[in-house]
């Protein structure tokens, strides 16, 4: 094992660029997954089975197939359909869509966890549908699901290295490029590995704390 600190110094500027892209993909991907997941969860509760079944199939399909292949699909097929986006934008869409199928389950559990009395009370007060959802059900459901959503943000963060498959320069890809140019592989990859632990471990401790605060 020959660790060379001067290589670390050289790699650091690239590393920080990678961190920025990784965090950007994580933040935007999470926001997309939160929004889309809520859409799936609500669509899966509509009375019409002509909506429920296709959405259910779509969600199951996305959840049970690899994110990496979905990224390739978006990256190579979307341009054929005339949609031109950058690699990072494609990556964010792919990762957000993939995780939205997980967050949909979280929302579903959260909505089902709201006591039936709340629905009945909204009904007794003859609140319109929009108000029932917006002012009664969702505020209670979302409070319960925050820690679970947070855990998916951490899982999503750990899946961002897959974006290197479509050429996004996030942390791991920066390390790979650096290695290809300088033939120094030990330091960059080790730093990136440690960086993931340093971000995700405290984040998961924080989620546990949130879980204690918000759920119980």
């Amino acid at each position: 094992m020959n660790w060379n600190w001067s290589v670390v110094d050289e790699f650091m500027p690239y590393f920080w660029d990678g961190v920025r892209v990784t965090l950007q993909a994580t933040a935007l991907g999470s926001l997309l997954s939160f929004a889309l997941g809520l859409v799936w969860a609500l669509l899966l509760r509509t009375p019409s089975r002509f909506v429920r079944w296709p959405v259910g199939f779509f969600v199951e399909f996305i959840r049970n197939t690899p994110l990496l292949v979905q990224l390739f699909f978006l990256f190579y097929v979307l341009p054929e359909w005339g949609v031109q986006t950058s690699a990072l934008a494609t990556g964010i869409i792919g990762i957000g869509l993939h995780y939205s199928t997980y967050t949909a389950e979280v929302y579903r559990a959260g909505i089902e966890g709201v006591p039936a009395g709340q629905w009945e009370a909204a009904r007794a007060l003859s609140l319109p549908r929009g108000r029932t959802w917006g002012a009664v059900i969702l505020p209670q459901a979302i409070r319960r699901v925050v820690p679970a959503l947070g855990n998916y943000v951490i899982a999503l963060l750990k899946d961002t290295p897959m974006l290197l498959g479509i050429g996004v320069l996030e942390m791991l890809n920066q390390a790979r490029q650096f290695g290809a140019q300088t033939f120094q592989y030990i330091e960059p990859y080790t730093i990136v590995g440690i960086a993931f632990i340093l971000i995700s471990y405290p984040a998961s401790l924080f989620m546990r704390y949130l879980e204690r605060r918000l759920v119980h």
């Binding site: 199939f57 199951e60 997980y102 979280v106 855990n151 998961s204 401790l205």
Partner: peptide, 23 residues
């Protein structure tokens, strides 16, 4: 039901939550 057959993952157990962090 049909969706139940299709449902590959046992979703009640909040699927990937356990996959999250290191803690």
């Amino acid at each position: 039901g049909i969706l139940g057959k299709l449902r590959i993952e046992e979703t009640e157990r909040s699927t990937k939550a356990g996959l999250a962090g290191g803690a």
